[in-house]
Simulated scan of single mutants.
Amino acid sequence: MNGVELFLLGRTLTKIGEAAMPEPEGGAARHGGSTRSVLIVASDVAGHPDSAVGEIAARTGLPQSQVSTAVARLRQAGAVVTAADPADRRRLLVRQAPQLSARVAEVRSGTVDEALASALGEHAPEALDEVRRALDVLARHLSPGAATRARP
């Protein structure tokens, strides 16, 4: 596998993951922000607690307005909390919420089986267990922090 193939596989897995997530009550459109940007921001906040929106935008490459929308959606879901920066009261610092909210618990309790089966199509019955096992191996060895270590 080369870098392009790995990148394309990652995009495919991202789309399957998005398909496996339960929609928020009222749908994503009502809440603003794409699922992908919300997940990117949530992942960044998990790795960099007490970050300002501008810092999250710089690390993720997302526009600051998109990060602000994602933070608002995560705050509404109870996944993050914000507080004024003591050094500069104009900035908000974002961190993971200390308690698991009902929405976060709902998202984490779901499985990817249906989305995987759909992506595998006619090959699903034979391949589903094999793909699930392969994903378990990847998850065990490649935590979200692995991407940071892979950057030059």
Rank of each mutant, 00 (worst) to 15 (best):
N2P: 08
V4F: 11
E5I: 10
T12A: 15
I16P: 08
I16A: 06
E18Q: 14
A19G: 08
A19W: 02
A20T: 10
P24S: 04
P24F: 02
P24G: 02
G27C: 01
G27F: 01
R30E: 14
R30C: 03
H31L: 01
H31R: 09
S34A: 03
S34E: 02
T35W: 00
R36W: 05
V38A: 05
L39S: 06
I40L: 01
V45M: 02
A52K: 13
V53P: 00
G54Y: 11
E55K: 05
R59I: 05
T60C: 06
G61N: 07
G61W: 01
G61Q: 05
L62M: 02
Q64C: 05
A72C: 03
L74F: 00
V81Y: 06
A84E: 14
P86W: 07
R90K: 13
R91V: 06
L92A: 13
L93W: 06
V94K: 02
V94T: 08
Q99C: 09
Q99S: 13
Q99F: 08
S109F: 01
T111I: 00
T111D: 15
V112F: 05
A115T: 09
L116F: 11
S118N: 11
G121V: 09
A124Q: 12
P125T: 04
A127L: 15
L128F: 06
R132D: 09
R132K: 13
L135T: 11
R140C: 09
L142E: 08
